[in-house]
Amino acid sequence: MKFGVISTAKIGVNAVIPAIKEAGHEVTALASRSESRAATVAEQLDIPHTYGTYEGLLEDDEIEAVYNPLPNALHAEWTKRAADHGHHILCEKPLAVNAAEARETSTYCDERGVTLMEAFMYRYHPRTQRAVEIARKLDIRSLKASLRFSLDDPEDVRLDPNLAGGSLMDVGCYTVNAARLFLGEPRRVYATATDTMDCGVETELTAILEYEDGVTAVISSGFTTVGTERYRIEATNGWIEAPDAFVPSKDDETELTYRIDDRHVVEEFDPTNQYAREVDHFVESIQNGRPPVTDATDATRTLQLIDAIRESAHEREPISL
């Protein structure tokens, strides 16, 4: 399949474009607001065509699918524009700025007959899929998930409130998605957030999610601490723990440690490129005419929970869903 990529964002240049090629597909065009920047990156990555506007790339009839790693506030707009040209879209997470916009974008793409997939690459790693299998055997009582790193550049787009920045939208969405993956939809949330960098978005956030029968999840995200990424599930009959849970190195083995009753296991997984697996699933969904695992419906549900978490942090009170 032939891909066009709008933006020279680092995640595209360093991870997704190489993954598209590793998966056996082509990146035939790259667009940037700076045509010289597009040309420089295209030369480095052996991409034949460049454009100085995103619209110019979308008008390229050779392209079959578009990868959209633009800032959060631009995801829905340029996803819909790509759909107008009949392109299938792999859009970075989160799909939109809120659930209403995600729902609208989903309907828009459906009406134009194109596949839309949210790029939660960790969902396609064999370890995540194995963790879901094991979790089904557990009587889960709680989950803790955290994704944090130190963001030092005050000009980073992830700190821009006009571009839907903030730690929740950037990395917290992984922990929200993981809570939904293992526990489903909560009935109430309570969140606290702080803007420690005085930038107009939250840079530290913690949320408690309450489920039926007293099950809870505690999720956190941040831009001001040393890097950490993990989830741990506690159950009456065991537990599961995954270090480097969301962005493990494609060159290293990964581990999943768990206990079921009296059996303690450490499973190892061979090095794999979860971005390439994500691309494979996207293309297979297009070819088979089936919704992706991380489709727009799933994205909308994640954003419904994100909306409630933001509201709770703003109002400083629990929010029922």
Rank of each mutant, 00 (worst) to 15 (best):
L303D: 01
H87T: 08
T53W: 02
L209V: 09
A83L: 04
T40G: 12
V114F: 03
L163F: 12
R310S: 09
E241A: 05
R112N: 05
I233N: 03
G86S: 02
F149E: 11
E284G: 06
D61E: 13
A207W: 07
G214P: 11
F182K: 00
S150N: 15
L168N: 06
R141T: 11
A178F: 02
P18N: 12
Y54H: 08
K21Y: 05
R180E: 15
T196Q: 15
S320K: 12
F223P: 06
Y124G: 08
T294R: 02
A99E: 13
F149L: 10
T196S: 15
N68C: 11
E255I: 05
I89P: 00
T294V: 10
S7T: 11
T192I: 14
F182I: 07
F149Y: 14
V27T: 03
C109P: 00
I63L: 02
Y124A: 09
H75L: 10
T216L: 13
T105V: 11
E204R: 08
A19S: 10
S106N: 12
T228F: 08
T224C: 15
Y211P: 06
D156V: 11
R123T: 07
A15L: 06
A102C: 06
R141G: 05
E22C: 01
L159D: 09
I20C: 04
S106V: 05
D152G: 03
R130I: 07
D270W: 01
R277A: 12
R290Q: 14
E212K: 06
I11T: 08
E268H: 10
A42C: 06
E268D: 09
P243K: 04
G52E: 05
V265T: 14
E55D: 15
A191L: 08
F269Y: 10
P318T: 06
R112M: 03
D61M: 07
E104M: 04
H264M: 07
T79Y: 03
L303N: 01
V176R: 01
C173D: 11
F120E: 10
E77Y: 13
Y258N: 00
P18W: 07
C109N: 03
R148S: 10
V247L: 14
F182T: 06
G166I: 09
A145H: 01
R123K: 10
Q44L: 11
F182V: 07
S32I: 07
I319N: 02
L163S: 13
L163Q: 15
L303H: 00
D270R: 05
